[in-house]
């Protein structure tokens, strides 16, 4: 393939991936309410966005769930990865396949499985007079669970690379097991932990299917709010919000990516 052809192909794929995103951005500035007609440039959807209680509440839920589920999945997943990396080969691959189920299984199956669990649990608890129904908490549990494999898969390679004698050296130099872990092991596997966290946050933010099945009556996230608006037509405020979120993330990630690599020193 000639260089020109390669670039053209790359370009076409990029257009394919980003065309919908550009479309949504343009629509967010569309004066007209319908997405079919261009009614002139306007910022009114951005204005109205900040007056819409439902959208802001869903945004709040979405961000809170993404943050909490990413933090908890990172804690749980990192400890799981540490435990799994110490297992014998057979047990290790068994545990990995269990943890990987939520990632490999169909989202719809995971979603309905959760729904069946939570509804049965609700019935069971009602029997004891405890009120339990699906909502924020169940969405959080669902998100933590499907984030878990992403954290484990990000941390595991770092743990495998970790030179165990570095840990032993820390003990040898007088550190207790806890000190050795937090001062030596954790900083070393940190890149994996961080990428697991970011991945979790992204997956959680973008999830629709599992939330759809476990949200119950309350706890709408942006995804489920959009889905419920399908019939009436999507409010253009949504486009405005997505554009803001996308650009914010784009700028942050760009900054992180453009930051010169290496030479990361910690002086204390």
């Amino acid at each position: 393939m000639s260089k020109w052809l390669k670039r053209f192909y790359l370009f076409v794929i990029m257009v394919f991936l980003y065309a919908p995103i550009v479309t949504l951005m343009i629509l967010s500035f569309n004066e007209s309410r319908t997405s079919v007609k261009w009614g002139g440039f306007s910022l009114k959807w951005y204005q109205q966005l900040f007056e819409s209680r439902t959208i802001l509440a869903a945004l709040g839920n979405t961000l809170l769930i993404a943050l909490l589920s990413a933090v908890l999945a990172t804690l749980l997943g990192t400890s799981a990865a540490i435990a799994i990396s110490h297992m014998k080969k057979r047990k290790q691959s068994f545990c990995m396949s269990i943890v990987n189920i939520p990632m490999l299984n169909a989202e719809i199956v995971t979603g309905i499985a959760f729904m069946l669990l939570f509804i049965t649990l609700g019935d069971l608890l009602a029997f004891f007079g405890i009120h339990f129904e699906m909502g924020f908490g169940t969405v959080l549990i669902g998100h933590i669970t499907f984030n878990l494999p992403y954290v484990v898969l990000s941390v595991m390679p770092k743990l495998k690379q970790f030179n165990l004698s570095m840990y032993e050296a820390a003990l040898d130099l007088g550190a207790g097991e806890g000190q050795a872990f937090f001062r030596i092991v954790l900083p070393d596997i940190m890149p994996g932990v961080l990428s697991g966290f970011l991945l979790s946050f992204t997956m959680s933010l973008d999830d629709f299917v599992i939330t759809h099945f476990v949200k119950g009556l309350g706890a709408d996230t942006l995804s489920t709010l959009i889905y419920s608006e399908l019939r009436k037509g999507i409010k253009p405020e949504m486009y405005a919000l997505s554009t803001i979120m996308f650009l914010a993330v784009f700028l942050v990630l760009l900054a992180v990516n453009l930051k010169p690599q290496g030479g990361v020193k910690n002086t204390n």
Binding site: N163, S165, M166, E168, A169, A170, L171, D172, L173, G174, A175, G176, A180, I184, P187, D188, V264, N266
Partner: peptide
């Protein structure tokens, strides 16, 4: 960590960070 002896490890095991 409670022993009065120290080790020089095979592949140095310096703390890379």
């Amino acid at each position: 960590n409670k022993r009065q002896l120290n080790t020089v490890f095979q592949k140095y095991a310096l703390f890379t960070h």
